[in-house]
């Protein structure tokens, strides 16, 4: 089932087109990575899903219900973590969660048990001081706790890891991964390693449109790179290898960097067979032999170019 579906969404700020005819959907219980450069329109899209910004045109549904601008009923299904979550600095974490719980209409026992559970999850159960004195990472973690308080079906995180140090990032990603079974996570980012670490579905936003989407493995296999990397111990071996005439029919291009070669081809498997034949026939022992996988980074660069 689609938890979130966005159809033909457009948004202009004056004459400035930010989102143009955007269509995508998010399935239940997935971690959906929403990738894009700074200013690509990730936050704008998320704010429209939350009813905080008015779409110029298009349609958004959350759990089958239509999102309306301003007061929207669909927010009861959503937990939202803004890019820089801001809290009332004069409150303590428990007090803040209590306020959030009362606003959503949870019973006081539920608020108490849920707050304790979530603050333990985000490792803030012992931080009994005013939020004003919290670090960025602590605020980000409290942000996740408040977003998960009403057990949302959809958790939207806007660049939750962008401003954090490696440890803080790992903590946030671990938490997101832990909640995967209970809720669907949509998170926007421009940090590709984060996406590779936890997402199963991705969509790449560029120029106001989805440039690339699907499951992470699908996207990668569709854009399978056409290369083999082979590295020899010496220049003689490298030359001996390159002299082999059997290579010629498969290779489209060769990049050479000392003893390291990258062979580009139309058909990786045939080239692989040929290469293995050559090295066994000529007794050449490579120190490295690798089929080049497309990285998200190379896909990103390809699309953005």
């Amino acid at each position: 089932m689609d938890i979130l579906s966005v159809e033909h969404l457009s948004k202009n700020f004056g004459a400035n087109k930010i989102i143009e005819d955007l269509t995508f959907s998010v399935q239940e219980h997935s971690i959906f990575g929403f990738i894009g450069q700074n200013g690509a329109g990730k936050t704008t899209t998320m704010k429209m899903v939350l009813g905080l910004l008015k779409p110029t045109s298009g349609n958004i549904t959350v759990c089958g219900e239509h999102v309306t601008y301003g007061e929207t009923k669909t927010n009861k299904y959503i937990g939202y973590l803004p890019d820089i979550p801001e809290f009332y600095g004069y409150m303590k974490p428990y007090e803040y969660l209590k306020l959030c719980g009362e606003i959503t209409g949870l019973s006081s026992e539920k608020i108490k048990s849920k707050s304790e559970e979530l603050l333990t999850l985000v490792d803030l159960d012992k931080a009994n001081k005013k939020i004003g004195g919290f670090s960025r990472g602590m605020k980000q973690r409290l942000g996740i706790a408040q977003a998960l308080l009403n057990e949302p079906k959809l958790l939207i995180c806007d660049e939750p890891t962008s401003a954090l140090d490696p440890i803080g990032r790992k903590e946030i990603l671990d938490i997101l991964y832990q909640v995967k079974g209970k809720t669907t996570v949509v998170f926007s980012t421009h940090i590709l390693s984060d996406v590779e670490r936890i997402c199963d579905h991705i969509a790449l936003l560029h120029g106001g449109k989805i440039a690339l989407s699907g499951t992470l493995s699908d996207v990668k296999s569709k854009h399978k790179q056409d290369g083999l990397l082979i590295e020899f111990a010496s220049q003689t071996d490298t030359r001996a290898f390159l002299d082999a005439p059997q290579l010629v029919p498969y290779i489209t291009n060769v990049e050479q960097n000392n003893t390291r070669l990258i062979l580009h081809t139309q058909d990786v498997q045939k080239l692989e067979v040929a290469v293995i034949a050559i090295i066994s026939e000529r007794h050449l022992l490579p120190i490295k032999f690798e089929v080049l996988e497309p990285t998200l980074e190379s896909l990103f660069m390809e699309v953005v170019k």
């Binding site: 905080l52 939202y80 803004p82 801001e86 959030c100 606003i103």
Partner: peptide, 15 residues
């Protein structure tokens, strides 16, 4: 200016 209302409104607090 501090964006503190966003958390409240997205929790379903009526404006």
């Amino acid at each position: 200016s501090r964006g503190t209302l966003i958390n409240m409104l997205t929790k379903g607090l009526s404006r």
